[in-house]
Design a protein around this nucleic acid. Structure first.
Lengths: 352, 352
DNA sequence: ACCGAAATAGTGAACGTTCACTATTACTCG
DNA sequence: CGAGTAATAGTGAACGTTCACTATTTCGGT
């Protein structure tokens, strides 16, 4: 998180006018009509001055005078249904409670493009803080625009300080322990894009837990959060891999895994146990219904926003501490094929 | 859509000061410290004047002076995964392209509470337009605050002018025609909450199409968009209902329907065909994979926003005309039990 | 070369607040 | 009771633009 630097005042229209040797009104006209109605020479002098001073108009002042805000509102139903939407919901309401208004931008393009867009926004002076729920490139951390807004991020690259809660993959450990208690010995993990710290967190816990409990891993398939990744992972599994449980990094991936298992004639959970992550509502009514991890994304978004607000105000954040992840056991996970006698899911003795 | 009324100027701090017989600075203090540091008598005079004039501070002017915007930004990944999120995505980018900034608010509470919140927002002068993607009560239509922003809505009650595109349930007709072509004669519809025009549109088309093609309907179950509604609908179906196809108003409902069918030992699609709506990514990899309707929600949101911008600017909107709904045939729909000889899905001869 | 209109540029005020002062009033204490 | 100080209230400027004017320049036509 970058501490706002010297609040270096931005140049005003007046300074541009002086630099260009014209009146402020001429600069104003240049900005309004994009140069129409100015003599070529004048236009160029103004353009040069603007470039020289790195001038950008103060939109608040403009709004004040024009009485136009250039702002629209979108009213949404409460977003319980999808991940980013649920985080958004929590974050937005936390911001409102603190008296802030939020601008939502959805950023596409690659990480580099997103990073640039973020830079622009931070530099524009239009916002006091930025909460990024989308990964940005590590370079963004350094050299943030001087008087710039603060950046906090929910699911970030390690080099920048991500808030890390989403990255908490420890629940994967609990799942594996429980599955081991049901006789599973050999696992497969289908991860999400490793650009996301959440994907990395789950992967890391998977690897650690397998090692800690002395279990075996057939390997890790690096996916991209799509069902196809899950499907492919199963399709390319040798018949004699010995894998009896697949830990998928999301429900959508898990759906692909289930699909793949069907294709190969493997029954779930009799032949293969599958677990997902996210508690997608459709998953609860799949056949078989999907064992998954329910994440309190609203709380996550809320806490992320509280962190941001705290940084903007330079105080300590008051976070709500409450478990974020909860395993939801459903039909898709059960005893391992050869250990069918064991009971239902439950904790396992640690070897530690 | 309400046309902005006379731009009745809001009272300023100066007028409040005159009314209360104090200086403008005293009013400013009152606003800043919520009355701290004022003599009781003074405080009350100011409070009375504010009440009398229905004064509210001009936040733009305040921002201008304090150099604090009270605005934060949230950066999101492009939201392809969930309904409201996808519409939001389209709407936000359309607004950005038009040079507007959007404030997102998620409104909970009942329709009445949402309506009041909308009123406040419209009256605050903070935004130039409001796009509501959540239903508001019909009363909201009338008596919008005078200088208020425009309201457009995507999924609205009939009494207010909803944009109606989401309400287009005509694709249900195509689905039924195709199913009839595969030998289905008796249908069941599980609707969404009829508060939503989308739910009403699908229901209306269902009823009309059944009548038009001379088919039979076992009835309509009014659901609430949850899987449980679908589950219950199937559970309470008599063994001899004769229903061979269920049209669910959403994929989530359809998942419940599938679940119910499993419980009763009915195979899908051999015994029962099921169709959903939304093209939920998990549905594509269900077993059986779900026949559904893919809706271009990004386009929908984009067009809704273009309408709003057009109204704000008092010009004609330039909408992108392109089919919104597309049927995705998958495993969950197939020939009716007694007509197993017929081919795959396809159009049916109309009786009309 | 001159007139008049069009094109271009400049001046000062205004938008509605808060900031940084100064002025007044009320209170405390010797 | 008066001086000193704290509490309360008032004054004018400033924030950075655009608006509504006025002033100057340019240029075509006679």
């Amino acid at each position: 998180m970058a501490v706002p630097g010297t609040p270096r005042r931005r140049p005003t229209i007046m300074e541009v006018a002086r630099e260009a040797g014209v009146s402020h009104q001429t600069v104003s006209r240049y900005l309004r009509n994009n140069g129409e109605g100015l003599k070529d020479a004048t236009r160029e002098r103004v353009a040069a001055a603007i470039r020289e001073l790195d001038y950008r108009p103060n939109l608040v002042a403009r709004s004040m005078r024009t009485r136009r805000t250039g702002r629209l509102a979108i009213l949404l139903p409460v977003l319980h249904s999808w991940n980013a939407a649920r985080m958004l919901d929590g974050a937005v309401s936390a911001a409102h409670e603190e008296g802030f208004v939020v601008e939502v931008m959805s950023l596409d393009g690659d990480a580099r493009a997103r990073g640039e867009r973020m830079f622009e926004l931070a530099d524009s002076g239009q916002v006091e803080g930025i909460l990024s729920l989308t990964p940005l490139p590590p370079e963004s951390a350094s050299g943030l625009p001087a008087g710039a807004a603060v950046v906090v991020s929910a699911d970030y690259d390690d080099k920048m300080r991500g808030i890390g809660e989403l990255a908490d993959g420890s629940t994967v450990g609990e799942i594996i322990e429980a599955l081991a208690g049901m006789g599973h010995r050999r696992f497969l993990h289908v991860s999400g894009q490793l650009q996301f710290s959440s994907a990395r967190g789950r992967l890391r816990t998977y690897v650690d837990t397998i090692a800690r409990l002395g279990l075996e891993s057939h390997g890790v398939v690096e996916g991209d959060w799509t069902p196809e990744a899950g499907l492919e992972a199963i399709r390319s599994l040798p018949e004699d891999s010995g894998v009896t449980a697949v830990i998928a990094a999301s429900d959508v991936i898990a759906a692909g895994v289930c699909r793949g298992a069907m294709e190969r004639g493997w029954r779930i959970p009799e032949d293969l146990s599958v677990t997902g992550w996210d508690d997608n509502p459709v998953g609860a009514h799949l056949h078989p219904s999907l064992t998954t991890v329910s994440v309190d994304l609203g709380l996550l978004g809320r806490n992320a926003m509280k962190r941001l607000v705290a940084v903007v105000r330079d105080v300590e954040p008051e976070l709500v501490e409450r478990p974020l992840n909860r395993i939801v056991w459903r039909e898709s996970a059960g005893p391992a094929p050869r250990a069918r006698t064991a009971g239902g899911p439950g904790p396992v003795r640690r070897r530690a």
